[in-house]
Amino acid sequence: MDKTVNQKAWFLVLPVFLVVAFSAVLPLMTVVNYSMQDTFGNNQFFWNGVGWFKELLDPSTDLGGRFLASLGRNLFFSLVILAIEVPLGIVVALSMPREGWTVAACLIILALPLLIPWNVVGTIWQIFGRPDIGLLGYTLNAIGIDYNYVANEFDAWVTVIVMDVWHWTSLVALLCYAGLKSIPEAYYQAAQIDGASRWAVFKAIQLPKMNRVLLIAVLLRFMDSFMIYTEPFVVTGGGPGNSTTFVSIELVKIALGQFDLGKAAALSLVYNLIILIVCWIFYTVMTNAGVERKIQASSEPAVEPKPSAALKPMPALKPKEGVA
C-alpha cells in the first residue's frame, strides 16, 4: 500500500509528540545538565565537564568498577534468559492444542504471569523459594540439595533466572503462536505430499514464518531484561553481596539512595545510549525484513482476494484481519 505524502499529518501526530516530549525530552535535559556538574549539597552545583563520564568508563575507580561490573552481570543475565526463553517459547508454541476450549484455557494461563505486577512476581518467588515456608525451597532442601537464595550466590542467580523464565517465556510463546497461526494449511499439505519430515517442516515452513515475531520477541526480551529492576530487587535486593545487582538496581542505588546526582546522571546517559544503539540495530533489521517481505509478496501472485470496497455500503465492510 503506497502512502501519500501529506505534511498536514503532523497535526495528527502533534499530541503524541507533545506528550512524549514532555515526559521524555524535558527529564532527559535535566539528566544531561546534572551529568556535567558536581554538588556538595544545598543545591550548589559546580561545573564538572566530562569528569563523571571519564570516571564511569574507568574500571579502576569506584563508580566505573560498579558500573562495568553491573553491566557485565546484566549482559550475562540477558544472554542466559534469551538462550532459555526463545527455544522454550518456540517449543511451547508448537505444543499448543489445535482447537477446542483448551486453546483458550492455555492462552489465558500463559498470559497470567504477564499481568502480575512486577513486585508481586518478586514476592511470589521470594515466598516460593524460601527454605522455611516456600514449596520450592522446602522441597529442594528435603531431597538433599542445599538451596538458599539469600546466602548463596549461585542459588540467587538460579532463582532470578528461573523467575524470569517463569515470568516471560509466555510472551515468546504467545508471539510464536501468533506467527504459527498465520501459516496457511496448504503449506502443510504440500509438505506432506513431498514426504517432508517433522524437522524439515519446522525448518522450511514454521521457522521462516516465525522470523518476524521472533525478532520482536528477542527485541522485547532483550530490552526488558536489560532494564530489569523490580523482580530481582524484591527477591534478592541485589545480593548476596553485589552478585545480582543489575544496571538499573545500581542506578537507583546511586540516584535515589545516595542522591549522587552527577554520577547517576552520567550513568543514565551511557545506559540510555546503549539501549538506543541496540534499539536502532533491531529497528533497522526489522524494517529491512519488512521491505524484503513486501518485495517477495509483490512478486508472488496475491492469494487473498482483494476486498472490493469502493461501492459497498459502509457497515458491511469489516477490517481485514492480520495485515501487517
Binding site: V13, V16, F17, V20, S23, A24, L26, P27, L28, T30, V31, M223, F226, M227, Y229, V247, S248, I249, L251, V252, A255, L256, L261, A264, A265, S268, Y271, N272, I275, L276, C279, W280, Y283
Partner: peptide, 24 residues
Amino acid sequence: HLFFWLLSNRMAPAAVYALPFFNL
C-alpha cells in the same frame, strides 16, 4: 525518525527517568 524515537522511548529504562521525573 519520529517512529523510531517513539520506539526508543518504549525501551527506555524506568530507572533513568525516576529521578528527573521526581524533580519535574
